[in-house]
Design a binder for these strands. Structure first.
Lengths: 340, 340
DNA sequence: TCGCCACCTGGGAGCGCTCCCAGACTCGCA
DNA sequence: TGCGAGTCTGGGAGCGCTCCCAGGTGGCGA
């Protein structure tokens, strides 16, 4: 017998558990799936057999037979190199994981490249996952819409700019920015600028609009706006721009801590004292906000809660729950430190 | 017929592709799996049918029949709240993904809690994944060893402190720290301290030992060492400690940028000019290193490359390649900025 | 001409589960 | 006493693939 059997998975099968427990396969299956109509005696016997044999059900077989993947995908849209190092993403991931803990749902991580999008839609719509969580940083990504149209349950983190019926969860960027603006006004600032995010991101526009609203309430001008990417260097360049245009500005609302870092550097280099000459308020409350020099006053958004909520929404949808909200905004809060 | 059929997965089956292409199931399967012994004509017909029907193979069925999961797990050991926000983890993830791109291998993310470790071993050893990548920050985690003993192919990121035969990939922390130490010596520093990482992490000890070696080479003392956790606050506390013990220290090697951030703050507050009075060298080269004030001289480790290499090792092992190294150290490089 | 081997193809079996149906047994109420 | 509803159990079918084997073709050397 040199003809060794094919390399088979180790461990017992459901059949063997059934034999050991003295019941049928069906009963074991019912116990595993926590279905009703199993006697306490049978249940105990099965649990004991499972323990004794170290049985772990074969997911592939369950998926195939049960027509359910027990698995959701977290899709990160945009070139991954940027996204994955984003603390935003890490926070969401943390929340997703926390919400998934204890449930028998696996998390599969996927990333889109621009060229394989059709493949991805095929894969996701092909029933390999039960639902999709998507972190879409650039709001006009067509993927959520396509998936939604293909009938794949999906929840997006961050408001998508296209696709009306798509369920999303986002921080309340508008009101967060509004609060920041009101705070700056309340501390007596009058020439208030803003470094805004990119125009093609909902998060950028929402924060800009919140700030604008706050300015309008106070009867202040909204001309001092520069759009920038969410990087320290872009924030620095934007700050330099603003100072060139308006050397006397006395406050700046920066739509992301990461940009604020660059802005602080430029202000420091140009000899502005913070907050005496220029007050700076950021957004996000990343760890770097509290360790910045000076510690950054910023609008806190709870990205972990965002991830949890997204997951909760998706699982609810999968469970067929009624009355789930079409979308959700999570509250933000102003964290006052030294920079404003 | 109110008795609607069970909610079946959408999309065509392999069988239908076969019919459309005018070949057998076997041939379609061979085309999909890129096996030899298929005529060009058949291959083209199949490809065309796949395209026309929008066929996407059922992973569960492939796994079940093929006895291969087409899926690897990335296991994050340690309480996830900490780890996921770590840029180290993000970098590894990026590398793993980059290396996986184009291959038909899914990535499943799992996290260990201390209490469910046995479940996790059962799951991972139960054949639901082909192999395991593990980011083990605390080196004495028993999980890699258990998995290895259970016959699960595993590659660990970061040298594990227990389990000799376990394949791992790590940055060359020792030589990176050594280079930092030599650099400080070469710039004329003589009273050089170190803020080291925790004692129970290999990365902490390796960097400490590299620094010690550098000190020893120059005949300098190695008494100025404080162990701290990898956080800015711990770094700050450690720096304060060191200054209290030795007000005249003229350099400090901090075993992580994240701690260096806190150290810089303390030095600044105590009126030390950097690098004039005290030179600071970090480790990691996170983004915050270049945006710190002053920009931080640091030892760069390429965590993305770490992730890639781990994945490459695991895939090689799965493919049955011979002669894979038992473990690998990736080079580091000193990035000189303003702080030293 | 005959073999043999490389190339190519199709069909049967079966991976380990879940679903469904049929049936047994126990109640409680008419 | 009977009967239906509620409770519990077992076995057959089949999810959609891959593997294996049997077999058919064509080319080339003996």
């Amino acid at each position: 017998m040199t003809d060794v059997a094919r390399n088979r998975r180790p461990g017992p099968r459901l059949e063997e558990v059934a034999r050991a427990a003295g019941v049928s396969r069906s009963t074991v299956s019912r116990v595993i799936n926590e279905e009703p109509y199993v006697s306490a005696k049978a249940r105990d016997a099965v649990h004991q057999a499972i323990g004794a044999l170290g049985y772990s059900p074969n997911q592939a077989a369950r998926t195939l037979a049960g027509n359910r993947a027990n698995c959701i995908a977290l899709v990160v849209s945009e070139q991954g190199s940027r996204v994955l190092s984003d603390p935003f993403f890490a926070g969401v991931l943390r929340g997703v994981h926390a919400e998934l803990a204890g449930r028998r749902v696996q998390l599969v991580l996927m990333m889109t490249q621009q060229d394989d999008e059709q493949d991805l839609v095929g894969y996701l719509a092909g029933g390999h996952v039960d639902g999709v969580l998507m972190v879409s940083l650039h709001g006009q990504d067509p993927l959520p819409l396509k998936l939604s149209e293909a009938g794949v349950p999906i929840v997006v983190g961050g408001r998508p700019l296209v696709g009306d019926g798509i369920r999303y969860v986002d921080s309340d960027n508008f009101n967060g920015a509004l609060e920041a603006a009101r705070y700056l006004v309340s501390t007596g600032r009058r020439r208030i600028a803003s470094i805004a995010g990119p125009r093609d991101m909902a998060v950028g526009m929402d924060r800009l609009n919140g700030w604008r609203r706050g300015m309008a309430e106070a009867g202040l001008a909204t001309d001092l706006v520069v759009h920038a990417d969410f990087t320290p260097d872009d924030g620095a360049a934007a700050m330099a721009d603003l100072l060139a245009r308006e050397p006397d500005l006395d406050a700046v609302f920066v739509a992301a801590d990461i940009m604020a870092l660059g802005a602080l550097r430029v202000l420091h280099n140009k000899g502005r004292r913070i907050p005496d000459d220029v007050a700076v308020v950021g957004f996000d409350d990343l760890m770097i906000a509290s360790t910045a020099l000076p510690p950054l006053t910023t609008v806190r958004q709870d990205v972990e809660q965002l991830g949890r909520t997204m997951t909760w929404c998706l699982l609810g949808q999968l469970a067929g729950e009624e009355g789930l909200p079409p979308s959700l905004l999570l509250p933000t809060s102003l964290v006052i430190r030294s920079s404003a």
